[in-house]
Each structure stands twice: as structure tokens, then as C-alpha cells.
């Protein structure tokens, strides 16, 4: 049974039909890269998976928790969000909290983890992203790459089943991109289920098990990245990868 599964997902922004029937299954430990031109619906798709955007039709199921249209069940939404971590383009760390507090906040507040245990988890997660010594630093004392790694540690501290990454290197200076990508690669190697929207085509090709190309609100083409890059089957994907070079 897939870990994440969506059926006939539809989403409108006003009259704009941004998701036009998405069927996507993601197995445990699978690494999915969603690519496409801007406006193709890829970020919106990612944001529906943890209920940041509501949907107008269809269902989303993550590890047995079903999310319906309208999110009329706040319990289900909260349960789902504990299984789905998310990392953003703009990091969105809490600027008034130290790195350690950023990472311990949700375990303490949502899971009622005792302080010491939560801090233990936070230290381990910060180690995991190579920032063990930054526990007491504040976000504005860190570089963009470090902030993004803290954001990853913050998501991991809730032990999510799947991690969503929304263009997480797009706001970084070029020399900081690799430190973040190497953390993501390491997570993939450790068996984390990852769904990422990315513009880093080379990275997507190397790390992902499956590439999903979105076009006009639909999954237009998907498959193994090697296969797709060497033999694009649709003219849209061919022109998309052609425009990258």
C-alpha cells in the first residue's frame, strides 16, 4: 500500500483550474521530484498534501489518515500534519526563538514531549544536519544554508513519515546550495520518503527514484529520471528539458 496517495485531486484559485485531477501514489522510502514550468501547479500540489491548500475535489491519504475536501475534520488535519513535514523556500524559521527552541517547539507543544527529551531529539536532529554546535544560536546569526538545515531539523524532530520540500534551495546563494542538497541526499540514502519540488534538475536526476513532470495542472509524464531524460515521451517535457540548457 502506498504511503501517500491522492485521487482525482482538483483545485481552483478563483476561476483558475490549477490542479486538474491528480492521481499520485508514493511508496515508503521513495524519492519523488516534481518538476515543471512555473504555474504548472507543482507547488500547489505539494501544499495540498499537508492541507496548506484545501482541495475542491478528490481525496488525499497519508499513512491511513484521509483528508477530505474542506478540511471539515480538524482532528484529521492535525493527525496528517504530524506525519508530513515540510521545508519551505524561505526557511520560515521562528526568528524570536533560538535554533534549539525552533526544533523543540512542535514536539513539546504538539506531542507533549518533556523538555529534556525534546532537547535530546533536537540535538540529535541538529547533529544530523551538521549543526550540532548551533543549538543556542538565533536564526539571524546563521547563513541561509544553515537556516535551511535548521528548518530541515525542525521538520525531522516530529519524526514525519514523509518530508515535503518546496524549492528549498531557490532562495540560497549558489555557494550555499550544496550544503543543503547534501543533507537531502543523506536523508534519501537513509530511506526517508521525500517529495520535492525543485529546479535543480541535475540533483533531481541523481537523487530521485521517480520524476514527475507537471504541465497545466496535470501529471503530464512521469517515470525514472534516467529514462525520462534520455527518452522524453511527450513534446512538452522534451521542450522543458531543452529549455534548461
Amino acid at each position: 500500500m502506498p504511503l501517500v496517495s491522492t485521487r482525482r485531486l482538483h483545485k481552483f484559485f478563483g476561476r483558475n483550474h490549477v490542479l486538474r485531477g491528480i492521481k499520485l501514489d508514493v511508496e515508503e522510502s521513495e524519492v519523488i521530484a516534481i518538476v515543471g514550468r512555473s504555474g504548472s501547479g507543482k507547488s500547489t500540489l505539494l501544499r495540498t498534501l499537508n492541507g496548506l491548500e484545501n482541495i475542491d475535489d478528490g481525496t488525499i491519504e497519508v499513512d491511513g489518515t484521509v483528508l477530505q475536501v474542506d478540511h471539515d475534520d480538524p482532528g484529521a488535519l492535525r493527525a496528517l500534519r504530524q506525519k508530513v513535514g515540510m521545508v519551505f523556500q524561505q526557511f520560515n524559521l521562528f526568528p524570536h526563538l533560538s535554533t534549539g527552541q525552533n526544533v523543540t517547539l512542535a514536539p513539546r507543544v504538539v506531542k507533549r514531549t518533556p523538555r529534556e527529551e525534546a532537547e535530546d531529539i533536537a540535538r540529535r536532529m541538529l547533529e544530523r544536519v551538521g549543526l550540532g554546535e548551533k543549538f543556542d544560536a538565533f536564526p539571524d546569526q546563521l547563513s541561509g544554508g544553515q537556516q535551511q538545515r535548521v528548518a530541515i531539523a525542525r521538520a525531522l524532530a516530529m519524526s514525519p513519515k514523509v518530508l515535503l520540500c518546496d524549492e528549498i534551495t531557490s532562495a540560497l546563494d549558489p555557494e550555499l546550495v550544496n550544503e543543503v542538497l547534501s543533507v537531502v541526499r543523506q536523508l534519501a540514502d537513509e530511506g526517508m520518503t521525500l517529495i520535492m519540488v525543485t529546479h535543480e534538475m541535475r540533483f533531481a536526476r541523481e537523487v530521485s527514484d521517480r520524476l514527475v513532470f507537471m504541465h497545466e495542472g496535470r501529471i503530464h509524464e512521469s517515470g525514472s529520471p534516467q529514462e525520462m531524460f534520455s527518452n522524453p515521451t511527450t513534446p512538452e517535457f522534451a521542450s522543458f528539458i531543452g529549455s534548461l540548457n
Binding site: N50, F88, L105
Partner: peptide, 21 residues
Amino acid sequence: RGQWEASACLALTYREQMRHV
């Protein structure tokens, strides 16, 4: 808005978002 989104993603309720973030 990113502060609301980030805290929502961590499964905080509206009250918890208000109070802590």
C-alpha cells in the same frame, strides 16, 4: 504569512500558533 504556514505544518493549532509563534 510564512510564520503561520511553518507553524501550521508542524501541526500546531490556531491557539498554539498564536501563543508560541
